[in-house]
Nucleic acid binder design. Sequence first.
DNA 1: CCCAGTATTAAAAAATTGTAAACTCAGGTC
DNA 2: GACCTGAGTTTACAATTTTTTAATACTGGG
Lengths: 226, 226
Amino acid sequence: MDAKGKKILIADDEPDILEVLQYNLVREGYEVTTAKDGEDALIKAKSTHPDLIILDIMMPKKSGVEVCEILRTQPVFHDTLILMLTALNDEGFQIKGLESGADDYVNKPVSPKVIVSRVGALLRRSNKESAEKVLKRGNLSIDPTKFEVVVDDRQVTLAKKEFELLYLLASRPGRVFLRNEILNQVWGNDVIVGDRTIDVHIRKIRQKLGLDCITTVKGVGYKFVN
Amino acid sequence: MDAKGKKILIADDEPDILEVLQYNLVREGYEVTTAKDGEDALIKAKSTHPDLIILDIMMPKKSGVEVCEILRTQPVFHDTLILMLTALNDEGFQIKGLESGADDYVNKPVSPKVIVSRVGALLRRSNKESAEKVLKRGNLSIDPTKFEVVVDDRQVTLAKKEFELLYLLASRPGRVFLRNEILNQVWGNDVIVGDRTIDVHIRKIRQKLGLDCITTVKGVGYKFVN
DNA sequence: CCCAGTATTAAAAAATTGTAAACTCAGGTC
DNA sequence: GACCTGAGTTTACAATTTTTTAATACTGGG
């Protein structure tokens, strides 16, 4: 996937800043949404699921720090990049910003160049790990955009959870995923499901693929092999 | 492993800044080395292998950007965190800094609080990934992420306890582990199991590896040799 | 040769995972 | 609204593997 074409949400109460940033980021190829205060930011974040959110710390309704903290409690936004905008010499807030879960922050007055550079750096950094691309492992092909798995020219239909589980395991072949890791990644941090749930999904995957590509590591977890 | 006790190298040509940063970071529990210019920084980096390097951009001999680029060409420093210090409104350099491979940068005049906060954030972020690493001892390779042991191209499957026991012994070759130490590390402080349990596991490891890499030290414990 | 400590076994006990079947629930259909 | 349908989950039990115990044999230093 391209580094560009990513979705960015900008939240600031100063229309001038919104406009300047939007203009510059759009020119770089990003898809930009804007919000005018903290609550608006939360609503827009939920509806558009951006890859990166730029939050001004000083905003009406809810501050950037508050918005950040709220977002971080939700699994969907666990990996969403957050970039804070803060007034100079506002040390207390700078620290609070990082502690609340922001990935980076930039001092005001903002320079478009710096913002673009930082946004690029953040996205590049995260891109390495979580890029959604087609995985090919031997005679197995897993396409997350089409939500499709192909084994030896035979197309297999997996349910959502089954697919996500397989994709997770196949994303790092050989690596053992602990049951906890799997729960966090596929189900989310706060969801509580029974012990056998993972097993049952693993079974279904093995059954449907008709392929012995998932190995059980007793007492530890599961891993993808090929 | 503790978040603290990490090694940090600070390179800046202004003694005042060096002193202030060193004082504040040492107080946080970090082990700090300093360098007065770019070339000094390279030498110190090679001798101390710090976890994180703070580089001033403007330095005699070699600039921070140059130092960063040189370090990044070397595999040993590939994962070393680099934090750039840059003068305000020095946009060109800020961008160069990030492009040259720095993980973050902070504007001068530096605030100790901000530095400490950023350093903490960077180390925390990197800490998650690199906790467990592959051990290689002669013709033996032990990979804790894959939960896999390879002896001379032959893959051996060990059970959980067996693996943990082998990993412990192999983590410090030659060193004798007392039976008590082994119990604490592998089984945990509160678990009560008989003395013969360790023997049995040792035996299984020896058997499965088909390799005489664990030596009994009568009356004391076991050690890994190679 | 004796003895504490260790090795070797086999078998019991415990822990973990596999499996089938039933249940829940949301969404679609008539 | 009653009725399907299928994903997701849970349950209860079977199957399997790991871990521990226990009983016995061995070993090397004094």
